[in-house]
Amino acid sequence: MNPGDTLEPREYAVTRADLVAYADASGDHNPIHQDDEVAKSVGLPGVIAHGMYTMALAARAVSDWTGAAHVVELGCKFTNPVVVPAEGTILVRVAGTVKSVEDGLATLALEVTCEGTKVLGMPKAVVRA
């Protein structure tokens, strides 16, 4: 890895079934992640993916690029929701650029988007180079 390198973008299809599975695994059964009426009643456009699920997709991309054992740090802010349709899928895209390499560690700047909108703010990863 060298500063300026771009990493092959990854795309992940997200379905309502994925949200149910994530809720079961994480214990986060907030109905905004499964019920359109509840989501809309609190001002959301519809059912949204869990923020941590979206972050996990970014982690999956970093792991695909570098190997899970190489990931040292991952962070982001949750800025925009991923609205998941009742039928079909929505795509989350993860792109990355090597910002720096120093002392055997590479810092990756990530861009995580859904339908062209950034859904994670300032996502970055630090990996063993």
Rank of each mutant, 00 (worst) to 15 (best):
E11Y: 02
P81W: 08
S63R: 03
D28W: 00
G75I: 12
G27V: 11
H50C: 05
A17Q: 13
V42D: 15
S41Q: 09
S100K: 14
G4C: 09
K40R: 15
E73T: 02
T107P: 09
L19E: 10
G27D: 10
E102K: 13
L57W: 05
I48C: 08
L57Q: 08
A23C: 09
D64F: 00
N80H: 14
L7V: 00
G96F: 02
L19V: 03
K77P: 06
G43I: 15
A59C: 02
A61D: 03
L57H: 06
H50F: 00
T117A: 14
S100M: 12
A39N: 09
Q34L: 13
L110C: 10
H50G: 07
V82D: 09
A58G: 11
A39S: 04
D28L: 06
G75L: 07
P3T: 04
S41P: 06
E8M: 09
Y53L: 14
A39C: 07
E73S: 14
V84L: 05
T15C: 09
L108D: 13
P81A: 02
D103S: 15
G96P: 04
P45S: 02
L19M: 06
A23K: 01
E111V: 05
A17L: 07
D24S: 07
Q34V: 07
T107W: 02
C114W: 01
R10M: 11
V82E: 05
S100E: 14
L108R: 14
K77D: 15
A59G: 15
K40I: 08
A95R: 05
I32Y: 11
D28G: 08
T107S: 12
A59W: 04
T89Q: 04
A109G: 15
V84M: 07
G51N: 06
P85M: 15
V92E: 06
G4R: 00
T66W: 14
D64C: 00
I90F: 05
Y22A: 13
E87C: 04
E73F: 04
K77Q: 14
L7G: 11
G51A: 06
N30I: 07
Y22E: 12
P45D: 09
S26W: 13
M55C: 07
V112P: 10
G75W: 00
C114K: 08
T6V: 14
G116R: 15
V62I: 02
D36L: 04
M55Q: 13
G88M: 08
L108E: 14
V112T: 14
A86L: 06
P45F: 01
T117N: 13
K40S: 03
D36T: 06
G96Y: 05
M52C: 04
C114E: 05
P31G: 08
R93Q: 13
V98C: 11
A25C: 09
